[in-house]
């Protein structure tokens, strides 16, 4: 490389300038191409319909010592009627890794098949991997109707 004015002369400076200018241009170009692609990959937030309460059925139709999954918005909720006829409801999403739990009459617990997690009928995690109790929902009996609503 020959430089007329020496290593720090104007020619080198001009070369440096060009290097940064072109380098910056490449980076900016890459950014302009990649940004829309990356942004495209992020799913947009969908407006969820806020559900505050759902009707789970008629009290007379719900057996004692049974558990059913009820659709609460787009989340599953488990409604349990215990041996004394009382109704309770919890989020049916296991606090471990997101599976859907079920009522086990033979064991008298709420059970998760995925990794053998167990909760008692108050929703407390009693054995297996679940780290937290199930979120509780409120059960309201209105005449014959059983309603489930969010705890406030």
């Amino acid at each position: 490389m020959t430089s007329e004015v020496g290593p720090t002369g104007p020619k080198e400076n001009r070369r440096d300038f060009l290097k940064y200018f072109l380098g910056g241009g490449v980076v900016a170009w890459l950014g302009a191409v990649l940004y829309p692609i990356l942004a495209f990959l992020i799913p947009p937030k969908q407006g969820e319909v806020e559900v505050t309460s759902v009707k789970a059925g008629k009290l007379g139709e719900i057996e004692k010592e049974s558990g059913t999954i009820v659709r609460f918005g787009n989340k599953p909720v488990i409604l349990i009627r215990n041996s004394s006829g009382e109704c309770v409801a919890f989020s049916a999403t296991c606090t471990h890794l997101d599976c859907t739990v079920q009522y086990r009459k033979d064991l008298g617990v709420i059970w998760c098949a995925c990794h053998n997690g167990r909760y008692d009928l108050k929703g407390q995690n009693i054995s297996g991997p679940p780290p937290r109790p199930l979120d509780e929902y409120r059960v309201i009996i209105q005449g014959e109707d059983v309603l489930i609503s969010k705890k406030v």
Binding site: V70, R71, N74, P76, C94, C99, T100, Q102, A113, C114
Partner: peptide, 10 residues
């Protein structure tokens, strides 16, 4: 079914 329990033996 998003509203069914996880089956046993999974």
């Amino acid at each position: 079914d998003a509203f069914a329990s996880a089956p046993a033996g999974i």
